[in-house]
Amino acid sequence: MSGNAETVAWSSQEGAAALAAPDFAEKRRAFDGRILLGFLLPIAIALLWEAAVYFGLSQGRLIPPPSRILATLEALAKTGELWAHSWMTLWRVLTGFAIGAVAGIVLGTLSGSSRTIRQFLDPTLQALRAIPSIAWVPLFILWLGIFEASKVALIAVGVFFPVYLGIAGAILSLDRKLVEVGHVFRLSRLQLARRILLPAVLPEAVIALRSGLGLGFMFVVAAEFMGASEGLGYLLVDGQQMGKPDQIVAAIIAFALLGKIADSLLVVASMPLVRWQDTVRERL
């Protein structure tokens, strides 16, 4: 009798594994297909532009063909300049992102959780948010000097505001019924925050962090215009001053790749936190 039960259990496990394996393989193929699909548009644009220059439809002087840009990237990589400038830009962005994100999360949480703090704090921050980023440059140089501190501070300012708005908005837009459910089950404030409020806010928080990271890469360009001797922004300025459009476009492509890699890593790191979601995006 027990042997029959073990046989049935073993058969059930084998059947479940057989059903799970194709499902996993299908998801893996779909994931690989989505990655390949994302490369189609830039590759198509590059091929079309290369063909236009090759057949004489454009001189390719101001916007070089992809072959020249790739040659420039290869030359910069061989000399080590590309890696040194990319690392310096990445270090500035990550440092500024860490400072701005922490400040945005803390103040956004306080502003979203307390009406008194929001009424006291939010008007000033909204007024500061309207100041153009370039307007902070002379003030930061005066306060912090021309070196790294002023550049990191400018990036942190750029990161702070989208994170602050995203966190505060996520808390303020929470469904009141979620809080009432917590009260019904007699959860303490700490339990309510950990088991209900935090999971509900996390998806919007991830979007806010991604927006902040994207602005961090935008602000680092302005930061590296502040007398920097290293960084991808320096490559842009050097290419403009020396009349090298291929170097300018190569630096722009390096910015795009670096930003995309950083954003993808942030998304992957946040996946375990929002795995519980059952959204339309997961099914499309």
Rank of each mutant, 00 (worst) to 15 (best):
G239R: 03
P162M: 12
Q240A: 00
L174N: 09
V249Y: 08
R189L: 15
L178E: 10
G231Y: 02
F219V: 11
A250C: 09
L202A: 13
A254G: 08
I261T: 15
S264F: 05
L154G: 04
G231R: 02
L142D: 02
S150H: 04
G227Q: 04
Q241F: 03
V163L: 05
V152G: 06
E180F: 13
L236E: 01
G214K: 08
Q240M: 00
V152M: 09
F140Y: 09
V237D: 11
Y234C: 01
L266S: 05
I253T: 01
S229H: 02
G145A: 11
E230T: 15
G239C: 04
L192H: 03
E204V: 00
I252L: 14
D246I: 11
K177H: 13
E180I: 09
F217I: 04
R176C: 01
L209S: 03
G231H: 02
V137G: 04
M226S: 14
A251I: 11
Q191P: 00
W136N: 08
Y234A: 04
L236F: 05
L215E: 05
I146S: 15
A193G: 10
A205F: 07
V157R: 03
E148F: 12
H183G: 10
L197D: 05
W143A: 13
G166F: 07
L209G: 07
R189T: 15
P203N: 12
V220H: 06
F185V: 13
V179E: 02
V179D: 07
M242R: 15
P245N: 07
E180C: 12
S229Q: 07
V179I: 08
I171R: 14
E180V: 09
P245I: 13
V220Q: 03
W136P: 08
K260P: 00
G231S: 02
M218R: 12
R195D: 06
G169C: 08
Q240I: 00
A205E: 08
W136G: 08
G182D: 14
L236P: 03
L209Y: 02
A193V: 01
L172T: 12
A170P: 03
L235I: 03
P245S: 10
F255V: 10
R194I: 07
M242I: 06
F160E: 00
V152L: 10
F217D: 00
G158A: 06
E204P: 04
L235C: 00
A170C: 02
L209M: 10
G216R: 03
L174V: 08
F140K: 08
D238V: 01
D175E: 13
I196Y: 13
Q240Y: 04
S173R: 14
F255H: 06
L197S: 09
F217H: 01
L213Y: 01
A222V: 14
A205S: 10
P245L: 12
P138K: 09
A153L: 13
G239T: 09
K260S: 01
V179R: 08
A208E: 12
G212A: 04
G243Q: 03
V206D: 06
D246S: 13
A168E: 04
R210V: 14
S150R: 08
L178Q: 07
G214S: 15
S264M: 05
V163M: 04
G145P: 02
W143P: 14
F161P: 00
I155P: 00
E224A: 05
A156K: 01
V201S: 13
V221Y: 05
